[in-house]
Amino acid sequence: MTSRLSSGRPARRHILPGLNLTLGYTLLYLSVIVLIPLAALVLKAAGLGLDGFWAAINTPRVWSALRVSFLTALAASLVNLPIGLVIAWTLTRYRVPGRRLVDALIDLPFALPTAVAGITLTTLLSPNGWLGAPLLEAGLRVAYTPLGIIVALIFIGLPFVVRSLQPVLEDLGYEPEEAALSLGATPSQTFARVILPALYPALLSGFTLALARTIGEYGSVVFISGNLPFKTEIAPLLIVGKLEQYDYAGAAAVAVAMLVISVTLLLAANSAQARLGRRGQA
């Protein structure tokens, strides 16, 4: 099934039509919706000059907020990998009571406005909440700590991982593992050596999407985080704070810093994915 891709890079001479049309449209749409508006942001930050830009982001407060945003998003996305894999795997392979309903629920985090998600999770996890109260008994404070941020971000990021894995798992079918099993591999060997490698690109894609999405999350986090400077203050909150002082350039500077981090992540993930993809096809 994968062998037909073994020619590697697509041939130079295109038999397929439509490259000019689709590429042209893609570039036009990308420019109008994304690139030009983002250029406006970068230009605004550039108005500060290099020194001004550096001064705006090189404060302990900004670094701490960037660190909180990044680390909580990273933790949440990592946690989402096994959770997402279990859910996607089960949904595609096993008879689950109410499968369609469970499948439908996966998109809930998309559909609930982030503010509602934040309010709801805070209701659940605050010291007097359904989960918060027993957890507090057990000595675990969730709401108004970094842990609370992570929980909110797990909620926000979950559909990305599940939805990235599902089509791949559906397409994967049973053939590869049947082959491995019939060749004498144990189920865990089969999983580790045959199935998991086939899932790497999708896992990486889901992870990256979840990370990218959660790193800048604002609406759901402000309710549960407590927003304490140097502890639970996230970078988007600083942007809002700067805007509140009519400091557009300063806000744009922090935004650009966040953008740089995100783009770096995406680039790294995409090149890793390209490499994984090629290895998978070999």
Binding site: T26, L27, L30, I33, V34, L35, L38, L41, T114, T208, L209, A212, R213, I215, G216, E217, Y218, G219, A235, P236, I239, V240, A255, M258, L259, S262, V263, L265, L266, L267, N270
Partner: peptide, 15 residues
Amino acid sequence: LLTLIDLPLAVSPVI
């Protein structure tokens, strides 16, 4: 181009 297509996902909603 692939990275640029992903870019909006990584932009904070506030931005």
